[in-house]
Amino acid sequence: MKTITKTESPEYIQLSLAAAMTLGLRPGIFYRGAKLSCINLLLTYGKGCAGSCAYCGLQRQRSGRFNRRSFIRVEWPTFPLAEIAARMKKREARVERVCISMVTGGGAVEDTLAVIRALKPLGKPVSVLMAPTILDQKQVMELKKAGAGIGSVAIDAATPELFRRMRGEGVGGPHRWNRYWQCLGEAVEVFGPGNAGCHLIAGLGETEKEMVQTMQQVVDMGANAHLFSFYPEEGSVLEKQSPCPAGRFRRLQLASYLIRNGFSTYGRFSFGGGGRIAGFGIGIAEADIIIESGVPFMTSGCPGQDGMAACTRPYGDGPPGDIRSYPFMPNLEDIAKIKMEMGDK
């Protein structure tokens, strides 16, 4: 029988600092007036997550109680689910989507279903960031049946070897590359093309070429690739590793946008030494227009009512002083900076 402590899911749940600010559960105003309209929730258990991912703040070896550990560099406060639901109702106009992140362990599948059902009366679209290690296709279907509209998988590492080193046997972790890709396929099958997502983290040690190839593979499967910039998490195995260089991330953001929107494909890209992108497979004039639009450098995430990312994750993959994914349309000054970063050595 499962032991339930006072603050475990599904009765309690963690939410991102940004979501807590959006719901008025934490004070603060986002730098440059950024907005978030997706409430990001994270299942919480006394035992924590069974994963040992080298870059993650929730890895089980890290000291401190699970719900007191930082995740993506900030606090994820814990609240009763009922209180969060009440806040969401009160701020209905501001909330366009909910995303529930599973963790590996506990009764995460049943609890995710319970959370989806509890939030159903709010009528907001629901995404689930699934935990493939503890999930089978039947359960993916149950998530959909319960009300989830988008299913995502955080593959994170772009190559099998990196995955093994960062998430699998290399760190004594339970995750397996093949199962993650299989689960992404199941998500496409169950939720439909365009309603499955795949998180990838740039800067874990892959080359740009490897990441472009992986993003293409994701898109070819019918899923959306959502790119994150690696930023070291204090207390994680990779806490001393440098963040993904800005130039590399900018080139990959552009590559992701081009592939996602059919402007180019992996086969048309050219690569230089060390796998660095040398050409994006489109004309210079066309590339300029797309870069100047600023859109490729905005956060890529599940959509809101207007089709743009509701999941803007303000300053989620870099501090506000070193913006990686722009939670708003970059202005002219930002674009000048982005162009400079793209041309780094």
Partner: peptide
């Protein structure tokens, strides 16, 4: 000063 979501 800087916090998780603000710098100025």
């Amino acid at each position: 000063l800087e916090s998780g979501k603000f710098i100025g």
